[in-house]
Simulated assay, not measured.
Amino acid sequence: MALGVERYCHMALFKVTVVGGGVLIASYGDANANLFGVSLQVGAILGNALRIILLQLVMQQSHVKLSPVASLFYIAPAAVLAFWLPVATIGLPRLLLQGAPIP
């Protein structure tokens, strides 16, 4: 919508709202929310949405037609480099301090 990839549709908004409401009802009282965890999850969702939008823009506007496997071949190394810094600064120290194997 904002980047010209999709057009606004009331039905799509309704579907997303129903699914989000269902998830909210199902998880009410079950989860122990943590601000840090929620912010990480929101950041991951926004990062993935940005990746998908940019990939769709490249696939629509480029003169070179890539198959899904070929695009994965080019995008995977960039994704590893992008996610290495958060993993090294947040995840790795906690994993090393935990001591017990992850189930």
Rank of each mutant, 00 (worst) to 15 (best):
L92R: 13
L66F: 09
A44F: 05
A78K: 08
L96H: 07
R51D: 00
I25Q: 06
G37C: 07
Q60D: 05
A49Q: 02
V18M: 13
V69T: 09
V18W: 08
G22F: 03
F73G: 08
A79K: 00
A82H: 06
L50E: 01
M1Y: 06
L50G: 01
Y74I: 08
G20T: 12
N32W: 12
P101S: 15
G29P: 09
C9D: 15
I102G: 05
M59W: 00
D30A: 08
V18L: 14
L81Q: 05
L95W: 10
I25S: 08
A70L: 11
A70I: 05
A76Y: 09
Q98G: 09
R7N: 11
H10A: 15
Q98I: 03
Q60N: 09
A82V: 12
A2P: 02
L55R: 03
F36C: 08
R94V: 15
I75F: 01
V16C: 11
A79H: 03
F73I: 04
P68I: 03
G43F: 09
A2Q: 05
P93S: 08
I25Y: 06
P101K: 14
L50W: 04
L35W: 11
T17F: 12
V64A: 04
A44S: 07
G91P: 01
S67L: 04
F83W: 13
V80G: 08
I90D: 12
N48R: 05
S67N: 04
P68Y: 04
L3E: 07
N32T: 12
A2R: 03
V23E: 02
A78W: 10
I53E: 04
L72I: 02
A49V: 12
S62R: 04
Q61E: 11
V5Y: 00
L24R: 13
V38Y: 10
L96Y: 05
P103T: 13
Q60V: 10
A76N: 06
S27P: 07
L57N: 04
L35M: 13
Y8R: 00
H63C: 11
Q61A: 03
L46K: 04
P68R: 10
L54E: 02
A12K: 09
A33L: 13
Y28W: 15
A31K: 14
S71A: 13
C9R: 12
P68F: 05
G20F: 08
V38M: 13
I102F: 15
F73N: 06
Q60K: 13
P93M: 10
L46E: 03
F36E: 15
L55T: 03
G22L: 09
R51E: 00
R51L: 07
S67H: 01
I25T: 13
I52N: 01
L50C: 06
A100C: 06
A88E: 13
G4F: 01
L46F: 06
L40C: 12
A70R: 10
I45D: 00
N48E: 03
I45G: 06
L72K: 01
L97W: 13
A88M: 11
V58E: 01
I75S: 05
